[in-house]
Design a protein around this nucleic acid. Sequence first.
DNA 1: GCTAACTATATCGCGTGCAATTCACTAGTG
DNA 2: CACTAGTGAATTGCACGCGATATAGTTAGC
Lengths: 155, 155
Amino acid sequence: MSNKRTNASAKPKGSPLLGEQLCFALYSTSLAMNKIYRKLLRELGLTYPQYLVMLVLWERDGVSVSEIGEHLFLDSATLTPLLKRIEALGLISRRRAHEDERQVIVSLSRAGRELRQKTGEVQDGVFHASGCTVDELVAIKQQLDRLRSRLQENA
Amino acid sequence: MSNKRTNASAKPKGSPLLGEQLCFALYSTSLAMNKIYRKLLRELGLTYPQYLVMLVLWERDGVSVSEIGEHLFLDSATLTPLLKRIEALGLISRRRAHEDERQVIVSLSRAGRELRQKTGEVQDGVFHASGCTVDELVAIKQQLDRLRSRLQENA
DNA sequence: GCTAACTATATCGCGTGCAATTCACTAGTG
DNA sequence: CACTAGTGAATTGCACGCGATATAGTTAGC
Protein backbone atom coordinates (compact mmCIF):
# COMPACT_ATOMS: atom_id res chain seq x y z
CA MET A 1 0.00 0.00 0.00
CA SER A 2 1.09 3.54 -0.63
CA ASN A 3 1.95 5.86 2.19
CA LYS A 4 -0.26 8.69 3.29
CA ARG A 5 1.08 11.72 1.49
CA THR A 6 -0.59 14.29 3.65
CA ASN A 7 1.50 17.11 2.26
CA ALA A 8 0.58 16.22 -1.31
CA SER A 9 -3.17 15.99 -0.82
CA ALA A 10 -3.25 19.11 1.35
CA LYS A 11 -6.85 18.90 2.41
CA PRO A 12 -8.14 21.55 4.77
CA LYS A 13 -8.41 20.31 8.30
CA GLY A 14 -11.67 22.08 9.03
CA SER A 15 -13.62 20.34 6.27
CA PRO A 16 -12.14 16.93 5.56
CA LEU A 17 -14.92 15.96 3.16
CA LEU A 18 -14.82 19.08 1.07
CA GLY A 19 -14.32 17.33 -2.22
CA GLU A 20 -17.21 15.08 -1.44
CA GLN A 21 -19.32 18.00 -0.39
CA LEU A 22 -18.76 19.49 -3.81
CA CYS A 23 -19.61 16.19 -5.42
CA PHE A 24 -22.83 16.00 -3.50
CA ALA A 25 -23.68 19.57 -4.43
CA LEU A 26 -23.11 18.61 -8.04
CA TYR A 27 -25.15 15.44 -7.75
CA SER A 28 -28.12 16.95 -5.94
CA THR A 29 -28.20 20.10 -8.07
CA SER A 30 -28.19 17.99 -11.19
CA LEU A 31 -31.16 16.01 -9.90
CA ALA A 32 -32.97 19.22 -8.98
CA MET A 33 -32.36 20.55 -12.47
CA ASN A 34 -33.70 17.35 -13.95
CA LYS A 35 -36.92 17.80 -11.98
CA ILE A 36 -37.36 21.31 -13.34
CA TYR A 37 -36.90 20.04 -16.88
CA ARG A 38 -39.28 17.14 -16.31
CA LYS A 39 -42.01 19.59 -15.49
CA LEU A 40 -41.21 21.92 -18.39
CA LEU A 41 -40.75 19.14 -20.93
CA ARG A 42 -43.88 17.21 -19.99
CA GLU A 43 -45.85 19.24 -22.49
CA LEU A 44 -43.42 18.25 -25.24
CA GLY A 45 -43.49 14.61 -24.16
CA LEU A 46 -39.71 14.51 -23.81
CA THR A 47 -37.26 13.65 -21.06
CA TYR A 48 -34.18 15.77 -20.52
CA PRO A 49 -31.76 13.39 -22.28
CA GLN A 50 -34.21 13.14 -25.16
CA TYR A 51 -34.36 16.93 -25.27
CA LEU A 52 -30.56 17.06 -25.40
CA VAL A 53 -30.58 14.81 -28.46
CA MET A 54 -33.12 17.10 -30.08
CA LEU A 55 -30.92 20.12 -29.32
CA VAL A 56 -28.05 18.39 -31.11
CA LEU A 57 -30.23 17.60 -34.12
CA TRP A 58 -31.72 21.08 -34.31
CA GLU A 59 -28.16 22.34 -34.43
CA ARG A 60 -27.07 19.85 -37.06
CA ASP A 61 -29.37 17.31 -38.65
CA GLY A 62 -28.38 13.93 -40.02
CA VAL A 63 -25.61 12.91 -37.66
CA SER A 64 -24.44 9.47 -36.63
CA VAL A 65 -25.03 7.90 -33.25
CA SER A 66 -21.40 8.28 -32.31
CA GLU A 67 -21.40 11.96 -33.25
CA ILE A 68 -24.35 12.53 -30.94
CA GLY A 69 -22.44 10.64 -28.30
CA GLU A 70 -19.42 12.88 -28.69
CA HIS A 71 -21.55 15.96 -28.17
CA LEU A 72 -23.39 14.60 -25.14
CA PHE A 73 -20.65 12.39 -23.64
CA LEU A 74 -22.90 9.32 -23.90
CA ASP A 75 -22.23 5.96 -25.54
CA SER A 76 -24.34 3.64 -27.63
CA ALA A 77 -25.55 1.64 -24.65
CA THR A 78 -27.41 4.74 -23.54
CA LEU A 79 -28.15 6.28 -26.91
CA THR A 80 -29.54 3.33 -28.83
CA PRO A 81 -32.59 2.75 -26.62
CA LEU A 82 -32.97 6.50 -26.09
CA LEU A 83 -33.03 7.14 -29.84
CA LYS A 84 -35.51 4.32 -30.35
CA ARG A 85 -37.90 6.00 -27.92
CA ILE A 86 -37.58 9.32 -29.72
CA GLU A 87 -38.15 7.50 -32.98
CA ALA A 88 -41.27 5.89 -31.51
CA LEU A 89 -42.50 9.43 -30.77
CA GLY A 90 -42.19 10.14 -34.48
CA LEU A 91 -39.61 12.90 -34.07
CA ILE A 92 -36.63 11.26 -35.77
CA SER A 93 -35.70 8.47 -38.17
CA ARG A 94 -32.75 6.09 -37.91
CA ARG A 95 -31.16 4.73 -41.11
CA ARG A 96 -27.93 2.97 -41.90
CA ALA A 97 -25.47 5.09 -43.87
CA HIS A 98 -24.94 3.92 -47.50
CA GLU A 99 -21.21 4.70 -47.44
CA ASP A 100 -20.63 2.80 -44.22
CA GLU A 101 -23.30 0.36 -43.20
CA ARG A 102 -21.98 0.29 -39.65
CA GLN A 103 -23.13 3.83 -39.02
CA VAL A 104 -26.68 4.80 -38.15
CA ILE A 105 -27.70 8.27 -39.30
CA VAL A 106 -30.26 10.08 -37.16
CA SER A 107 -32.47 12.60 -38.94
CA LEU A 108 -35.31 14.84 -37.87
CA SER A 109 -38.82 14.19 -39.13
CA ARG A 110 -41.12 17.06 -39.96
CA ALA A 111 -42.65 16.78 -36.48
CA GLY A 112 -39.17 16.80 -35.00
CA ARG A 113 -38.25 19.98 -36.81
CA GLU A 114 -41.51 21.68 -35.89
CA LEU A 115 -41.16 20.79 -32.22
CA ARG A 116 -38.36 23.32 -31.99
CA GLN A 117 -40.87 26.14 -31.95
CA LYS A 118 -42.27 25.01 -28.64
CA THR A 119 -38.96 25.28 -26.81
CA GLY A 120 -39.13 28.96 -25.94
CA GLU A 121 -41.05 28.29 -22.75
CA VAL A 122 -38.55 25.65 -21.74
CA GLN A 123 -35.63 28.05 -22.00
CA ASP A 124 -37.51 30.79 -20.19
CA GLY A 125 -38.72 28.40 -17.52
CA VAL A 126 -35.27 27.08 -16.71
CA PHE A 127 -33.77 30.53 -16.64
CA HIS A 128 -36.50 31.73 -14.33
CA ALA A 129 -36.29 28.71 -12.04
CA SER A 130 -32.55 29.16 -11.67
CA GLY A 131 -33.12 32.57 -10.14
CA CYS A 132 -29.64 33.53 -11.32
CA THR A 133 -28.31 36.41 -13.32
CA VAL A 134 -26.71 35.75 -16.67
CA ASP A 135 -23.31 36.53 -15.21
CA GLU A 136 -23.79 33.93 -12.49
CA LEU A 137 -24.83 31.31 -15.01
CA VAL A 138 -21.79 32.06 -17.14
CA ALA A 139 -19.49 31.80 -14.16
CA ILE A 140 -20.87 28.47 -12.97
CA LYS A 141 -20.87 27.04 -16.47
CA GLN A 142 -17.22 27.91 -17.05
CA GLN A 143 -16.14 26.36 -13.79
CA LEU A 144 -18.16 23.23 -14.44
CA ASP A 145 -16.76 22.89 -17.94
CA ARG A 146 -13.25 23.09 -16.56
CA LEU A 147 -14.04 20.59 -13.83
CA ARG A 148 -15.61 18.16 -16.27
CA SER A 149 -12.68 18.23 -18.65
CA ARG A 150 -10.32 17.52 -15.78
CA LEU A 151 -12.46 14.68 -14.52
CA GLN A 152 -12.59 13.20 -18.00
CA GLU A 153 -8.82 13.48 -18.32
CA ASN A 154 -8.32 11.64 -15.05
CA ALA A 155 -11.00 9.02 -15.68
CA MET B 1 -39.06 41.45 -8.29
CA SER B 2 -40.60 43.71 -10.88
CA ASN B 3 -38.44 43.52 -13.97
CA LYS B 4 -40.42 40.93 -15.91
CA ARG B 5 -40.84 41.31 -19.60
CA THR B 6 -43.07 38.40 -20.25
CA ASN B 7 -44.44 39.25 -23.66
CA ALA B 8 -41.13 38.67 -25.41
CA SER B 9 -38.30 36.40 -24.38
CA ALA B 10 -36.00 38.34 -22.09
CA LYS B 11 -33.00 36.18 -22.78
CA PRO B 12 -29.62 37.57 -23.68
CA LYS B 13 -29.32 37.90 -27.42
CA GLY B 14 -25.77 36.72 -27.68
CA SER B 15 -26.36 33.29 -26.15
CA PRO B 16 -29.97 32.23 -26.46
CA LEU B 17 -29.38 28.80 -24.97
CA LEU B 18 -27.24 29.92 -22.09
CA GLY B 19 -29.42 28.47 -19.35
CA GLU B 20 -29.47 25.19 -21.18
CA GLN B 21 -25.74 25.30 -21.66
CA LEU B 22 -25.36 25.58 -17.92
CA CYS B 23 -27.80 22.74 -17.40
CA PHE B 24 -25.86 20.55 -19.76
CA ALA B 25 -22.60 21.45 -18.03
CA LEU B 26 -24.23 20.42 -14.78
CA TYR B 27 -25.60 17.21 -16.21
CA SER B 28 -22.44 16.08 -17.95
CA THR B 29 -20.14 17.06 -15.09
CA SER B 30 -22.30 15.13 -12.69
CA LEU B 31 -22.04 12.06 -14.90
CA ALA B 32 -18.27 12.51 -15.15
CA MET B 33 -18.03 12.73 -11.37
CA ASN B 34 -20.09 9.58 -11.03
CA LYS B 35 -17.62 7.74 -13.26
CA ILE B 36 -14.72 8.83 -11.07
CA TYR B 37 -16.53 7.58 -8.00
CA ARG B 38 -17.46 4.31 -9.65
CA LYS B 39 -13.79 3.58 -10.16
CA LEU B 40 -12.78 4.66 -6.65
CA LEU B 41 -15.66 2.90 -4.92
CA ARG B 42 -15.30 -0.37 -6.79
CA GLU B 43 -12.89 -1.58 -4.15
CA LEU B 44 -15.46 -0.87 -1.45
CA GLY B 45 -18.21 -2.54 -3.47
CA LEU B 46 -20.40 0.56 -3.30
CA THR B 47 -22.10 2.84 -5.80
CA TYR B 48 -22.07 6.58 -5.30
CA PRO B 49 -25.62 6.83 -3.90
CA GLN B 50 -24.85 3.93 -1.60
CA TYR B 51 -21.71 5.75 -0.48
CA LEU B 52 -23.79 8.85 0.22
CA VAL B 53 -26.03 6.82 2.51
CA MET B 54 -22.96 5.52 4.32
CA LEU B 55 -21.68 9.09 4.73
CA VAL B 56 -24.97 10.02 6.38
CA LEU B 57 -24.81 7.03 8.72
CA TRP B 58 -21.17 7.60 9.64
CA GLU B 59 -22.21 11.10 10.60
CA ARG B 60 -25.24 9.96 12.57
CA ASP B 61 -26.20 6.33 13.07
CA GLY B 62 -29.69 5.00 13.59
CA VAL B 63 -31.77 7.33 11.46
CA SER B 64 -35.07 6.74 9.71
CA VAL B 65 -35.51 6.36 5.97
CA SER B 66 -37.17 9.74 5.69
CA GLU B 67 -34.33 11.42 7.60
CA ILE B 68 -31.83 9.97 5.14
CA GLY B 69 -34.06 11.24 2.38
CA GLU B 70 -34.03 14.75 3.80
CA HIS B 71 -30.25 14.77 3.85
CA LEU B 72 -29.85 13.42 0.34
CA PHE B 73 -32.97 14.88 -1.32
CA LEU B 74 -34.20 11.39 -2.23
CA ASP B 75 -37.52 9.73 -1.46
CA SER B 76 -38.48 6.24 -0.39
CA ALA B 77 -39.00 5.01 -3.93
CA THR B 78 -35.28 5.42 -4.46
CA LEU B 79 -34.07 4.72 -0.95
CA THR B 80 -35.93 1.52 -0.13
CA PRO B 81 -34.32 -0.65 -2.82
CA LEU B 82 -31.02 1.16 -2.35
CA LEU B 83 -31.02 0.42 1.38
CA LYS B 84 -31.95 -3.19 0.75
CA ARG B 85 -28.87 -3.58 -1.44
CA ILE B 86 -26.63 -2.06 1.23
CA GLU B 87 -28.25 -4.36 3.74
CA ALA B 88 -27.53 -7.33 1.47
CA LEU B 89 -23.87 -6.26 1.55
CA GLY B 90 -24.01 -6.65 5.34
CA LEU B 91 -23.21 -3.00 6.05
CA ILE B 92 -26.49 -1.92 7.65
CA SER B 93 -29.63 -3.29 9.30
CA ARG B 94 -33.19 -2.07 8.83
CA ARG B 95 -35.67 -2.39 11.72
CA ARG B 96 -39.05 -0.94 12.46
CA ALA B 97 -39.05 1.63 15.26
CA HIS B 98 -40.77 0.49 18.46
CA GLU B 99 -42.31 3.89 19.16
CA ASP B 100 -43.74 4.23 15.68
CA GLU B 101 -44.02 1.05 13.68
CA ARG B 102 -44.33 3.03 10.45
CA GLN B 103 -40.74 4.18 10.63
CA VAL B 104 -37.77 2.07 9.57
CA ILE B 105 -34.55 2.75 11.46
CA VAL B 106 -31.31 2.22 9.55
CA SER B 107 -28.25 1.27 11.63
CA LEU B 108 -24.65 0.46 10.81
CA SER B 109 -23.35 -3.04 11.34
CA ARG B 110 -19.84 -3.63 12.59
CA ALA B 111 -18.69 -4.08 8.98
CA GLY B 112 -20.45 -0.86 8.07
CA ARG B 113 -18.66 1.08 10.80
CA GLU B 114 -15.31 -0.43 9.90
CA LEU B 115 -15.70 0.38 6.22
CA ARG B 116 -15.22 4.02 7.08
CA GLN B 117 -11.51 3.49 7.46
CA LYS B 118 -11.15 2.67 3.79
CA THR B 119 -12.54 5.98 2.59
CA GLY B 120 -9.34 7.98 2.74
CA GLU B 121 -8.32 6.92 -0.73
CA VAL B 122 -11.72 7.85 -2.07
CA GLN B 123 -11.45 11.39 -0.77
CA ASP B 124 -7.92 11.76 -2.02
CA GLY B 125 -8.80 10.25 -5.37
CA VAL B 126 -11.70 12.58 -6.01
CA PHE B 127 -9.75 15.62 -4.95
CA HIS B 128 -6.89 14.62 -7.20
CA ALA B 129 -9.14 13.84 -10.17
CA SER B 130 -10.84 17.23 -9.86
CA GLY B 131 -7.52 18.95 -10.48
CA CYS B 132 -8.88 21.95 -8.60
CA THR B 133 -7.60 23.99 -5.73
CA VAL B 134 -9.54 24.04 -2.49
CA ASP B 135 -10.63 27.58 -3.19
CA GLU B 136 -12.05 26.58 -6.54
CA LEU B 137 -13.96 23.69 -5.01
CA VAL B 138 -15.38 25.97 -2.32
CA ALA B 139 -16.46 28.51 -4.90
CA ILE B 140 -18.21 25.98 -7.11
CA LYS B 141 -19.88 24.30 -4.17
CA GLN B 142 -21.31 27.54 -2.85
CA GLN B 143 -22.71 28.50 -6.23
CA LEU B 144 -24.21 25.07 -6.73
CA ASP B 145 -25.79 25.09 -3.28
CA ARG B 146 -27.41 28.41 -4.04
CA LEU B 147 -28.59 27.22 -7.43
CA ARG B 148 -30.03 24.02 -5.98
CA SER B 149 -31.98 25.79 -3.29
CA ARG B 150 -33.47 28.12 -5.87
CA LEU B 151 -34.39 25.25 -8.15
CA GLN B 152 -36.03 23.43 -5.27
CA GLU B 153 -37.97 26.55 -4.35
CA ASN B 154 -39.27 26.90 -7.88
CA ALA B 155 -39.97 23.20 -8.38
C1' DG C 1 -8.63 -13.53 -52.13
C1' DC C 2 -8.47 -14.60 -47.06
C1' DT C 3 -8.35 -13.37 -42.73
C1' DA C 4 -7.22 -10.85 -38.61
C1' DA C 5 -7.74 -6.38 -36.54
C1' DC C 6 -10.62 -2.67 -36.06
C1' DT C 7 -14.95 0.10 -35.76
C1' DA C 8 -19.97 1.47 -35.07
C1' DT C 9 -24.06 -0.14 -33.03
C1' DA C 10 -26.67 -3.11 -30.44
C1' DT C 11 -27.71 -6.00 -26.41
C1' DC C 12 -27.64 -7.47 -21.54
C1' DG C 13 -27.61 -6.77 -16.66
C1' DC C 14 -27.78 -3.90 -12.85
C1' DG C 15 -28.54 0.23 -10.10
C1' DT C 16 -30.52 4.30 -9.70
C1' DG C 17 -34.44 8.42 -9.75
C1' DC C 18 -39.07 9.42 -9.61
C1' DA C 19 -44.39 9.87 -10.44
C1' DA C 20 -48.12 7.40 -8.93
C1' DT C 21 -50.16 4.20 -6.05
C1' DT C 22 -50.75 1.08 -2.15
C1' DC C 23 -50.11 -0.64 2.47
C1' DA C 24 -49.40 -0.35 7.48
C1' DC C 25 -49.66 2.14 11.20
C1' DT C 26 -50.95 6.32 14.09
C1' DA C 27 -53.82 9.87 15.86
C1' DG C 28 -57.43 11.72 16.27
C1' DT C 29 -62.97 12.36 16.52
C1' DG C 30 -67.25 11.28 18.03
C1' DC D 1 -65.33 1.24 19.91
C1' DA D 2 -65.65 2.18 14.89
C1' DC D 3 -64.34 5.81 11.51
C1' DT D 4 -61.35 8.81 9.26
C1' DA D 5 -57.55 11.56 8.04
C1' DG D 6 -52.72 11.62 7.97
C1' DT D 7 -48.04 9.79 7.69
C1' DG D 8 -43.90 6.71 6.58
C1' DA D 9 -42.46 2.91 3.68
C1' DA D 10 -42.96 -0.03 0.13
C1' DT D 11 -44.30 -1.14 -4.54
C1' DT D 12 -44.97 -0.48 -9.57
C1' DG D 13 -43.69 1.16 -13.99
C1' DC D 14 -40.68 3.61 -16.84
C1' DA D 15 -36.34 5.93 -18.45
C1' DC D 16 -31.89 6.54 -18.03
C1' DG D 17 -26.29 5.51 -17.57
C1' DC D 18 -22.88 2.38 -18.15
C1' DG D 19 -19.63 -1.89 -17.76
C1' DA D 20 -19.33 -5.82 -20.34
C1' DT D 21 -20.12 -8.34 -24.29
C1' DA D 22 -21.83 -9.47 -28.97
C1' DT D 23 -22.49 -8.66 -33.86
C1' DA D 24 -22.14 -6.83 -38.29
C1' DG D 25 -19.45 -4.17 -41.43
C1' DT D 26 -14.81 -2.29 -42.86
C1' DT D 27 -9.93 -2.11 -43.43
C1' DA D 28 -5.19 -3.82 -43.48
C1' DG D 29 -1.83 -7.26 -44.16
C1' DC D 30 -0.29 -11.10 -46.36
